[in-house]
């Protein structure tokens, strides 16, 4: 099953976030709870954890991109 990895809303005022780094690449297996990408917020850099086990199929945002909350950053093939 394909699932979308999106930009989380990390604070009530957050409208967008800068994707500062991918910690996994296309084709990588990812386990739930592993850090997947980094977002710079007003105060800190957040390492956002994967919410499912799966394989990262396609990255749709590049490092340095300012992405709106909810924007799809990548596609994953979820594994049961």
């Amino acid at each position: 099953m394909k699932i979308e990895v999106t930009m989380p809303k990390m604070s009530p005022e957050m409208r967008s976030g800068v994707l500062c780094a991918w910690l996994k690449g296309e084709g990588d297996r990812v386990r739930k709870g592993e850090a997947l990408f980094e977002v710079e917020t007003e105060k800190v850099v957040c390492q956002v954890e994967a919410e499912r086990d799966g394989v990262l199929v396609r990255l749709l945002a590049e490092e340095g991109d300012d992405m709106p909350v909810g924007a799809v950053l990548a596609e994953m093939e979820a594994q049961p």
Binding site: P8, E40, V45, C46, V48, E51, E63
Partner: peptide, 18 residues
């Protein structure tokens, strides 16, 4: 690629926060 010092890095667990 961030100007923040390395020690200002935290984990974000969306499921738990939600």
């Amino acid at each position: 690629m961030s100007a923040r010092p390395e020690w200002l890095k935290v984990r974000f667990n969306r499921e738990a926060v939600d």
